[in-house]
Design a binder for these strands. Sequence first.
DNA 1: TGAAAACTGTTATAATATAACATAACGGTT
DNA 2: AACCGTTATGTTATATTATAACAGTTTTCA
Lengths: 142, 142
Amino acid sequence: MTQCCEHHPPEEQLTRNQRLVLDALRSEDGPLTAYNLLDRLRDEGLRAPPQIYRALEKLVETGIVHRLESRNAFVSCNHAHCGGQGVLFAVCDDCGSIEELRTDAIDAALRSTTEAIGFHAHRLAGEVRGVCRPCGLKKTAS
Amino acid sequence: MTQCCEHHPPEEQLTRNQRLVLDALRSEDGPLTAYNLLDRLRDEGLRAPPQIYRALEKLVETGIVHRLESRNAFVSCNHAHCGGQGVLFAVCDDCGSIEELRTDAIDAALRSTTEAIGFHAHRLAGEVRGVCRPCGLKKTAS
DNA sequence: TGAAAACTGTTATAATATAACATAACGGTT
DNA sequence: AACCGTTATGTTATATTATAACAGTTTTCA
Ligand SMILES: [Zn+2]
Ligand SMILES: [Zn+2]
Ligand SMILES: [Zn+2]
Ligand SMILES: [Zn+2]
């Protein structure tokens, strides 16, 4: 969370804009788009898209924040991603909720798949569509 | 390729615009963006983005074409995806080449990961970043 | 045949992201 | 302190990606 290993720069080194963006993402439990963030941070002096995108770029690079590709949105992460594990979201087709999964169980299978074609895998990024537990229960109830 | 099972509508049923877009994608070995396609198909009478996006929507829905999220681009597929297997691309960080992988080997691990949280998974969509075989060989050579 | 559904063409606009440039703050060296 | 390279910032303008909305046409099929 704070600093799990030598790979991650400590959060204290974040710049003002990076910190503002990160805090905004943390204070939200779902994903936010760059323009959502811009709206929320205008009062703090962030007025133009590049300011947001630059902060996001750095945060994503260090793995504190992930980009949710299918929605052009960003979420803060409280996993570690130390050894270079992947980033995988479970996205509910019914309610749109998302949850980040650990890829540990998948990594071995993934590796064998890529090795078969001589591809040297670094990390997986993906999304699983499906139905979350609450939505599943609602369905069987009805 | 043509029709592998009852899930896929036969390609003969594609409309003119869908066929034009599909053929354009097939004639290219890499991914194309919607606007790339628009440029290539202007002479065939496709002049506006919605015409391209609508065709793509249908093609992606039926699984003949995939969307490469990290690039906002589209690629034709020659796998089957019958049982609802996922869509997974290996993307080379060095040369940008892409290759579609089968997800069979990782489906089980994925399932156990999602079941652990009560999520009922339908299908995976993702990308593995890494280094492709040719680029790997170039590196060790140098 | 005749209504519903799907596809088409078109214009306009929304939403997402980056280029380019000028300035300011930071960090280490002399 | 003065210097210099690097990184971060603010700003304007623009590029890129995607959809809304509407009118007309074709296809499907009861
Ligand atoms: Zn994470
Ligand atoms: Zn749900
Ligand atoms: Zn495929
Ligand atoms: Zn390569």
